[in-house]
Design a binder for these strands. Sequence first.
DNA 1: GTCTATATAGGGATAGAC
DNA 2: GTCTATCCCTATATAGAC
Lengths: 198, 198
Amino acid sequence: MSGAQHVPESETPDTRERILDIALDLFTTQGYETTSLREIAEQLGFSKAAIYYHFKSKDDILIALHMRLHALGGDTLRNMDPATMTLDGWAGLIYELIEQLRTNRILFTLHERNRAAFEKLHDEAHAGEHQDLETLFRTALNNDAVPVADRVRVSCAFGAVLMGSMITGDSFADVAPDEMTAMLRDVVRDILYPPTAP
Amino acid sequence: MSGAQHVPESETPDTRERILDIALDLFTTQGYETTSLREIAEQLGFSKAAIYYHFKSKDDILIALHMRLHALGGDTLRNMDPATMTLDGWAGLIYELIEQLRTNRILFTLHERNRAAFEKLHDEAHAGEHQDLETLFRTALNNDAVPVADRVRVSCAFGAVLMGSMITGDSFADVAPDEMTAMLRDVVRDILYPPTAP
DNA sequence: GTCTATATAGGGATAGAC
DNA sequence: GTCTATCCCTATATAGAC
């Protein structure tokens, strides 16, 4: 913990990350298009043009934020085989989503609230180098080997989790995080493994 | 059926409604800010300025679309008393939502995908004349008389329904509407009335 | 790395003719 | 009701000094 040679003044400023943090906040609350670079620069304390030293375009900032989300789901999703997803497999994925949402809710909200902007990016990056997360989900959900009823339930479970901890926002701010997590897991179980049929 | 005096050429053009229909489509797929009036006018077949005869601003178009949603939920929501919402009351509301989504999915998607824009409208219309739907939901969800666990489940049920029939979009296009509705109702029941505890 | 100044484009909105 | 022409503003992005 001591041998660090190159220690900056107080704490790593890391301007690039600071830009991303501020952008994440503003893009989420106000929306991507409505937020101007001038506004971001204002909060940073320096000029608008300085941002262009760190990012080559406004879209580039959004892409960087998208990559943060990718980094989160990274391994989990790469190991998932859309063709052979069982109900249990889906359940595990959703439980992990609940965990991720605990510490990164804003990042998910950003994506939720700026779908159009992200889709546009995806369209422009038609160089197939980038497999979108949502596309992966959809194709997996279209797997005919799994009964339709199950697939609908999986889809509903995602919606329940996302709504329960994201859209509703701070309505449950007073609830302890652990308690909230437990309740969400219970709901997911009740959706995926209902008493009646499957 | 015959005595109509003032019959237009073929079928009521009703330019105002045509504008709204096209705007609804474009705002939903591309996003509100990204869609220009020029683009809307293009699809209408006439000039951008003509739109200003029917609407006094771009925001005014968005407001009109918001009113369409209001008209849908109208009576149901006005009769709801946020202070005395029981679990059964919520269930009824969600079942109705399922019905509304069958015929008006795009309208809900518009709101889902342009939250920021609608919130901005709501902020500007601080003249209290307009009680927002979502605000109504949130305050009702904050009712301390209802146990937290129940409130979370209600919130999840909304998410499940919205996701199951909206965000997922046309992944289940092949499923018959009636069947889809039945499945969604089942899921809602399993969420709100779980086997373990209430 | 961050600045000032500027190029360029596009958007919303209005005026006034038809 | 719809058009053309125009105003005005703000946004992204670049050039070049420090």
